[in-house]
């Protein structure tokens, strides 16, 4: 062993001893959090995995069935449909929120510092999602809804926004874009405030147009916060439940039966806890795989400022 490695291991030993010193304090700090984690995250995760191997209606004893639920799941067209529908939804709503948010943030940033304006744009995000869903269900009613009044006033046909299989999912995505865009815009606006104003002055002197400045200056500089906003909206989009539960209940013809709603239905209306758990665990795996993609995205997101 060389002297260097000896020295290194000595420091490590010292660090470890000091670590022991913190141990008791750490226990105090961590006990509540750890208790919560153990009881409501770890324990249920283990149980959930176990349920997924059983046939259980929640009312009698679970019966071990091995991998039967997974075999069913692979051949269940509604499971694959729900993944597809969820993915389509996520792409639509995240796309709308990020693009809308970018546009709004840029406008805010270049036009005004008005707090009132920013607060007003934030209001939809604060409205409970159940309220949002009810409200939009009424606005989008095929006959009596406000949007169809607009269409018919313009001489167009009325549309079944939530009842036609082609429109239902985009409508749900729009509803949640309405509620999330203001929030995203605020995040991005904050990122833009960090860009030194001199850069814009320089661009103005060079005679660069606003659009080009935005694309070549602002956008690259706010990449980290853009990534953050993207992840936030991605995570919440995957969990779509409220809007669907209130407006379409998965219909028409499974067009909005997203994975969360499908799992919920299996567990709580069809008495199939085992199968629901298998679906949920599969979702964990799918999302785990997607996280890799996300990680790469995040890694590519260092700003040119730092």
């Amino acid at each position: 062993m060389t002297a260097m490695t000896l020295a290194k291991s000595a420091t490590r030993a010292r660090a470890r001893r000091r670590g022991h010193g913190d141990g008791r304090t750490a226990l105090g700090f961590l006990a509540p959090v750890f208790l919560g984690f153990a009881v409501f995250y770890l324990y249920p995760a283990v149980r959930g995995a176990w349920y997924s191997l059983t046939d259980w209606n929640l009312l009698s004893e679970p019966r071990f069935v091995g991998l039967d639920n997974y075999a069913t799941l692979v051949g269940d067209p509604l499971f694959w449909n729900s993944l597809k529908v969820t993915a389509y939804y996520v792409v639509l709503t995240v796309g709308m929120q990020i693009l809308g948010g970018l546009l709004l943030a840029a406008l805010l940033h270049r036009l005004t510092r008005s707090l009132v304006l920013r607060s007003l744009l934030l209001v939809p995000w604060l409205v409970p999602s159940v309220t949002t869903a009810l409200l939009w269900m009424w606005l989008l009613d095929a006959n009596l809804g406000f949007f169809n009044h607009l269409l018919t006033a313009a001489g167009l046909d009325n549309q079944g926004f939530l009842t036609s299989p082609d429109l239902a999912l985009p409508s749900v995505a729009t509803i949640n874009a309405w509620s999330g865009t203001g929030y995203t815009a605020l995040l991005l606006y904050a990122g833009m405030l960090l860009v030194p104003p001199q850069i814009y002055e320089a661009a103005a002197i060079d005679g660069t147009g606003e659009v080009r400045t935005f694309l070549s200056v602002t956008l690259p500089l706010i990449r980290p916060i853009l990534a953050f906003a993207l992840v936030v909206s991605l995570i919440s989009s995957f969990q779509l439940f409220d809007t669907v539960a209130v407006t379409t209940k998965g219909g028409p013809v499974n067009a909005t039966r997203v994975i969360y709603f499908y799992i919920y239905e299996q567990a709580f209306t069809h008495f199939k806890m085992g199968y629901a758990s298998a679906l949920a665990l599969s979702l964990v795996l799918v999302l785990g795989a997607l996280t890799f993609v996300q990680m790469r995205l995040l890694r590519a997101s260092t700003s040119d400022l730092t």
């Binding site: 269900m137 009424w138 009613d141 095929a142 006959n143 009596l144 009325n158 549309q159 079944g160 009842t163 036609s164 299989p165 028409p252």
Partner: peptide, 8 residues
């Protein structure tokens, strides 16, 4: 048409 029925 089915998809253009009101929720009422």
């Amino acid at each position: 048409p089915y998809d253009k029925n009101s929720s009422l």
